[in-house]
């Protein structure tokens, strides 16, 4: 899978322009005029969104005109593989965290990456994950009284 830079440029410019449309659209219901006491609530976001939409589309068109036919590569298959092998566990980390809490999520994530990608001994990797989770708990929950997201395991162990 190889993505050319020009395709990515145009895609991103169009996405940004669409974001601009969304911002401008969302501001419309707030009133976008200029009243006696200055701008309405939606005045700034509306024009920011409008300008963003214009700039985004202009950038897309500009890129097509100026750089058509260029073959610079945005990402090659090797890079994409490496990127995904990091991005997917990270996304899994977020999902696991939402279900099981930050401590369990972080421990599992560290364990997985150190074991599968760092090629460490699984016991060593598990120790790393658990050790990290415990030090997080000590620093945040205990020392600084900043509670982190907890899940069923902590409830079972009666750690609040």
């Amino acid at each position: 899978m190889v993505i050319k830079r020009i395709h990515m440029e145009v895609l991103v410019a169009c996405l940004l322009a669409l974001a601009g449309v969304a911002v401008a659209g969302g501001s419309l219901e707030l009133g976008v005029g200029w009243t006696d006491s200055g701008p309405d609530a939606g005045y700034f976001p509306f024009y920011v969104g409008l300008l963003l939409a214009i700039a985004g589309f202009a950038n897309a068109i500009w890129t097509v005109i100026l750089h058509r036919g260029e073959t610079e590569i945005f990402i090659d298959s090797e890079q994409a593989r490496r990127l995904l092998s990091f991005l997917l566990p990270m996304t899994a980390f977020v999902i696991v965290t939402l279900l099981l809490g930050l401590y369990v999520g972080a421990a599992l994530y560290l364990f997985y990456v150190a074991w599968r990608q760092g090629k460490y001994n699984p016991f060593w990797a598990a120790g790393l994950g658990i050790g990290f989770a415990i030090s997080l708990f000590v620093v945040f929950d205990t020392l600084f009284k900043v509670p982190l997201l907890k899940g069923p395991l902590e409830a079972y162990l009666k750690i609040y």
């Binding site: 980390f93 977020v94 965290t97 150190a114 990608q117 760092g118 990290f132 945040f140």
Partner: peptide
């Protein structure tokens, strides 16, 4: 990196979570 990389990632997410104790912010970081 196989150790410090995920540690940094985890700390980034912890940091984002503590800003306002919101799980929504984890998605925003991603």
């Amino acid at each position: 990196f196989a150790v410090i990389g995920p540690v940094i990632v985890a700390i980034c997410f912890v940091g984002a979570y503590t800003v306002s104790n919101a799980t929504f912010d984890l998605w925003l970081v991603l």
